[in-house]
Design a protein around this nucleic acid. Structure first.
Lengths: 215, 215
DNA sequence: TTGACAAACTGAACGCCGTTCGCTAAGTTG
DNA sequence: CAACTTAGCGAACGGCGTTCAGTTTGTCAA
């Protein structure tokens, strides 16, 4: 039965070509500016064919986001294993997240800055579940890094979960505004690197002291 | 020459009706799901008429954002004048920003989470310049609050500009993720209020210490 | 009052879009 | 070779943002 396998391979190959073309175009031109007709033209198939492989345009996106996250997660885990200094590992991880977002701006925006609205209706599709799982595992890298710092007495905080989530929202805010508005000449941005490093300082500083500062 | 003035008033009135309808629909259904035909239908004019008042769909958005900011700015300035404790004023201002975003989720998303791409081609239109001016003035509230805290020795940091920008990106990250994903059952969010308060603690804590924590 | 002019407004169209569906043509199987 | 399966596609649907020629409405000088 080599025939069925060859067919499956060919099907998978075309699926990959669609994803590749879509990913390139999304990154080049942004999700909203890419039509299925453009993707189809690039791979020299008809638009209708894409629907034999993906439910709709959003599912192309979801699949791509899963891949992007898998990459981020891999890098973060590599960093976790390589870096012996827990605090430095945390800082490098945060910095890597930001840089990763800046290097994949369209993927990042699509994943974290776009109203999906569809996680209810689409939550049961394999693409979505896979992407979701990877996302949670990626977040777990941050959680582990923070725990490691606390266990070693390098940082102090009460609620690991709340602290991890806050840290994520902070670096997300930095990343997304850099992507969306850093090129806006009307806002008096300080240097990109200065902004990032100041942000990292602030996050790590905020976790060092013992009591909240609020009166 | 009361006629010209009456005409001007009528023109302004229709402009307002368009903006009102657009604003309502955007908030109800999200920018992407609102068509000019829907707006036109609601005000009982033809879609083409809207183009006599606004250059394109994005300019409707820009004008609305300006109004939303004006409101935010007014509230922040009121707070600034009322609160005598500088640190408490800062904290309340940050908290107000977040709550404001959560109360106007679609306006917030449209303003800060949507790729505009058009600030180059449209930077010279009055709508854009007005919105931009208000936005900068709103940011200045944060800058002033931080300076005030530093002047009174309540907080310590070197670069006022970088620190203000970082603080903005942090609360923006918190706000935008709460809007977009807090209802996602797949992510183990802690309580909304706990998250916000932990975030504010972390920001203010991070500005209290003298030296960066990084080795 | 009338005719010329300007301003406000619109119907119809253009060229896109995401998506669907019935058909074709090629490949596989008994 | 005939029956069947499957991949792929042309053409269409309804909707989108936007444009523009043309109509209606209101104003004003003569």
């Amino acid at each position: 039965m080599g025939i069925a396998e060859r067919r499956a391979r060919q099907k998978e190959a075309l699926r990959s070509r669609i994803l590749d073309a879509a990913g390139q175009l999304f990154v080049e031109e942004g999700f909203a500016n890419v039509s299925l007709r453009k993707i189809a033209e690039r791979i020299e198939y008809s638009p209708a064919t894409i629907y034999l492989y993906f439910r709709d345009k959003h599912h192309l996106l979801t699949s791509l986001c899963g891949d992007t996250f898998a990459q981020l997660k891999t890098e973060l885990e590599r960093l976790e294993n390589e870096e012996r200094d827990a605090l430095e590992g945390l800082r490098k991880g945060l910095r890597f997240y930001i840089d990763f977002g800046l290097e994949h701006p369209n993927h990042y925006l699509m994943t974290f800055c776009t109203p999906h609205e569809f996680y209810h209706q689409a939550a049961s599709t394999p693409e979505f579940q896979h992407t979701n799982k990877i996302g949670l595992e990626t977040f777990d890298c941050l959680r582990r890094a923070l725990r490691r710092c606390r266990d070693q007495g390098l940082l102090e905080f009460e609620d690991l979960e709340a602290t991890s989530q806050v840290a994520w929202t902070f670096i997300h805010g930095l990343t997304s505004l850099l992507i969306l508005y850093y090129d806006d000449p009307h806002f008096p941005w300080v240097g990109r690197d200065r902004l990032i490093e100041t942000g990292l300082d602030q996050i790590l500083n905020g976790l060092r002291a013992t009591a909240p500062v609020a009166s």
